[in-house]
Design a protein around this nucleic acid. Sequence first.
DNA 1: CGTAATGTTGATCTCAATCAAGTCCGGTGG
DNA 2: CCACCGGACTTGATTGAGATCAACATTACG
Lengths: 239, 239
Amino acid sequence: MTDALISNLLARDAISAEEEQITRALFKQEIVFAAGEDLVRQGSRPSISTLLLSGLAARYKLLEDGKRQITGLHIGGDFVDLHAFLLKHMDHGVLALTDCAVMVAPHRSLQTVTENQPHLTRMFWLLTLIDGSIHREWITAMGRREVKAHFAHLICEMFYRYRAVGLTEGTTFRFPITQATLADVLGVSTVHVNKTLQALRGDNLFSWKDGLVRITDLGELERLAQFDPTYLHFNREPR
Amino acid sequence: MTDALISNLLARDAISAEEEQITRALFKQEIVFAAGEDLVRQGSRPSISTLLLSGLAARYKLLEDGKRQITGLHIGGDFVDLHAFLLKHMDHGVLALTDCAVMVAPHRSLQTVTENQPHLTRMFWLLTLIDGSIHREWITAMGRREVKAHFAHLICEMFYRYRAVGLTEGTTFRFPITQATLADVLGVSTVHVNKTLQALRGDNLFSWKDGLVRITDLGELERLAQFDPTYLHFNREPR
DNA sequence: CGTAATGTTGATCTCAATCAAGTCCGGTGG
DNA sequence: CCACCGGACTTGATTGAGATCAACATTACG
């Protein structure tokens, strides 16, 4: 069940059999969260970290005035709150956008890994660095891409990430997110998400219906989005 | 000269004398960059990581259409490209906004730290996690704060960060950045930065002249910005 | 001095927010 | 089967924030 996480590690470096075994042994009980539930509460101090097995989850921040911004999306194989192991305090929450199956690793066990497994420690560190890299790309998209290009960029990103964990068929993948949620991802209003989507439909680069994305012209979509997958760091090399 | 880095570590956990000594020994030659030079080139594969000793630097991404977005600001004591140690490939650049003095640590030495110093490794990891936390706050500011509040938020953030490395006097600190650069931080046009600044001047919460910020009403400024310093993780605890 | 970088200002235009209705489902209960 | 409901999506009208364009002012500096 931890295969997707192993895929994510293997996409970046070789992993020894022992390391794989240690990684799998980190995770205990499987838990299922219903759509709408918090996997991790903003303000909490978790003693465990959560691996998403299946489903779609969002990191978000709430402002005092009630506005919400989603700062990251997570799919199967993502170690959604590994950073809480060292940050201790959750300055944001993680929400299940669909039903989500997760497994959890006690911070005590992660501590042991950092004491005895330098390479595996670097690999976990790397996963959090890639999250940071994605954050930088999102900042750039929010600041300097128009909404249409930002939307297209998100579709490209999710396509590459789903593909890395084997959840695409050709250029089709399930991405079950509502327009209201997308608004909190893109930092615009729901109405504007809808209108942007209409505009994109006119370009015929992808379709999006009932949570199913079908990319028809990836090259042109990437050009529109000025998409460059470098920031996802899908290259295997010694770390 | 590495005092500010040690301050940054000590603000988050205790550091043993040996760890402090090892940290200081990581850094070799001091190098000075002139304002406008790149400390790290976008697309490069550095074999060293850079500690900023003094000056102001910006992480930035360039889009193909020439637009620029600054994704982070760095001051003395910031380990500006520690993440390159594991990411290997720079998907963004780091630019000296003022003259900058730096020291560099070979990745080889950092590798040795990760092999032999679990706690110090976690502390370095933590520094990159805090960068990530700041990124999330910036995403939120870009998506869900109006420009005026975003600007105020940035002033608050820089105040807390400068204070942590002893570069404030009361509520005054040097923040030598141009309005054009601020535009690339906030994701708006230069003209709009100027007009927002005028509006803020009317509120009399802070002044900003010749690169000197003087906060006159921190409480009210934080209220306007909906600022909560939690995300900077300035709390000492075992990590 | 002349030139370049920075900051300031006003006019106009565009994109996206907001407000206010809608439609189009897939349940669910009478 | 139909009436009703709630959630998701769609649409048009109006308003507002911020971009763009075009000057002009100020300062630093070779």
